[in-house]
Design a protein around this nucleic acid. Sequence first.
RNA 1: GCCCCCAUCGUCCAGCGGCCUCGGACGCCGGCCUUUCAAGCCGGAAACACGGGUUCGAAUCCCGUUGGGGGCACCA
Length: 482
Amino acid sequence: MTVRVRFAPSPTGYLHVGGGRTALYNWLFARHHGGVFVLRADDTDIERSTPEFQVDILESLEWLGIDWDEGIVVGGPHGTYRQTDRTARYRAVAADLVASGAAYYDGATPEQLEQIRVAAEAAETSPVYDGRYRLSAEEAAARLAAGNPPPVRLAVPRPGETRFVDVVRGEIVFGHDNVDDFVILRSDGTPIYHLASTVDDVDYGITHVIRGEDILPSTPKHILITQAMGAPCPQYAHLSLLNGPDGKKLSKRHGDTAIRAYRDAGYLPAAVRNFLAILGWSPGTDEEIVSLETMIARFELGAVSRNPAVFDLAKLEWMNGQYLRAMSAQEFSDLALPLVETDLGRELTADERGTVIAMAPLIQERAKRLTEVAPQVRFLLNDEVTIEPGSWDKVMTTAEAPIALAGAGAALEALAVWSVDAIEAALRGMLAAAGLSAGKGLQPVRVAITGSAVSPPLFESLAALGRERSLARLAAAAARLA
RNA sequence: GCCCCCAUCGUCCAGCGGCCUCGGACGCCGGCCUUUCAAGCCGGAAACACGGGUUCGAAUCCCGUUGGGGGCACCA
C-alpha cells in the first residue's frame, strides 16, 4: 500500500515554525517512502480563517521547498481539498452515524453541560458528557421540523477504552471515562474539526497521520469516528511541540514564530529546513548539516524524538552562516543584491552593482544572515557617509586619531595607482612612519570611510569607494576633529 | 480538578543492558590567526532529575515521586 500523508493547517494564522516542521516531517516521510503528500485546508473555522493566511501558508511551504502531490491549488482526485466545500459530505456521514446508532441528536443545554463540568470538578473526576440528554427519534424529528435543529454527538461506548500504537510514542490507552460524547455536527449543520478531519483522512485514504502532540488527546475521538464509519484506522504519529527558551510553548512572546519572519530576517530556506529537520530528529550520525537527499534517505518516524524541543535561534544563525558560506559568490550576490536595493530605496547602477558584487564575497565569509549585507555596503552607495555616533566616540577620541587621519590622507593622496595593494602599502607605510599600531591607526580611517567601527576589510573598502570619495571622507573627518 | 505525553551538558541530538569514568553540535570560556567585526583552527568547563526494584551488570527495562509540557468547546 502506498503511503499517503497529509498536512492540514487551518488558515487562521501564519504558518509558524512548528507547523513548518510538521509539514516537513510529513513531506520527508512521504518522499522517503515514495508516497503521496496531500495538502488540505482545514478551514471549518469560518470565523477565523482568512485568504491572507491561506496564501501565507502556501508561500511559506513553497519557500521551504515543500511541494505537494495532491491538495489545494494543485488539485487531485478528491475535489478541492477544502473542508468548506465538503459540508454536504460531513452531514451525510453524520446522518449515517445517527442512523447506525453510533451518533445521536443531543438535547443538552449549555447550562446542563456547565453543571456537569462543575459537578465533575467537585467530585474530582473527568468532566465528560455521557449523553444523558440525548434526544429520542421523535424529539429530534420534532426539533428538526420546528427549525431548531439539535447538534449531533458521537456515542462513545461506555465502559470502554481506545488503544493504539503511536509510531513515535508507543502504545497509548485512553479510558472512555475520560472521552466525552463530543459534538461532531453543530446545530447549524456545520462540522466540527474532529468530524471533518477524520472524514477527510478516511476519504483521502490517508495511511499515516503525522501531527502535533497537542492533538494526541483527541486521537481516540478520531479513531472512534473512523471505526464508526467502518473504515481502517491510519497509523498515528504525534510530534512533540516546540518550546521557547523558557520551556513554555513557543509563542510570539519568544520572538518571531512565523516562517515568513525568518525569510524576511535573511535566513536561507535550506538552512531553516535543515534546522527544523534536526530539531527533534537525527539522521543517526553526528552530522548537523544534512542535505535534502540525505534527509529523505534517512528519515524515519521511529528516529523522531519524543522530547519537546526548544527553538534555539543561536543554532539557526550558525547554521544559516554555514549555508551562506557554502554557496557560490554568484548565488550569494544574486540573493543579496535585491536586499541592498530595497535598503537603498532605488535600483543600483551598473557600476554600483559591480562594486557590490566585488565586495560581496568579503561579507559572505563572515555573515550569518543575508540582511547583514546591505548595512555593510551602504557606505559605498552614497556620496556622503553617515557616521555612527557610537563608533565615532569609540575611536575618534584618542590622541592617535588625528594623526592617523592626516597621515592616511597624505599617504593615499600621493598614490598613483588606486588598488588594494597600493592602498595597503601606503597605509602600512603611514603606520610605520607615525609609529602607530594597526589597531590604533586604522580604526579611525575605517570609521571615517565606512561610518562604522565594524565594516568589510578596510583596504578593499577604500579601493571600492574610490580615490575621490575616500580622500574627501578622510578630510571631512579630520576637519570635524580639528 | 481529571486525562495524556515527556525527563542525558544552558540548548538540540547520539546512546536502544556490558564497548559509557556518556559521544557530537550550538552557545559559553580560553588560545591561535588578525586592520575592525566575523569566519576559520585548537583547547576547556558543562548532563544521565530523585527513590525503589529487575539483572551477574542499567543512562538504557519496570514502578513510584518530583518537575515540565499538552489536552479537557456547538476552536482547530
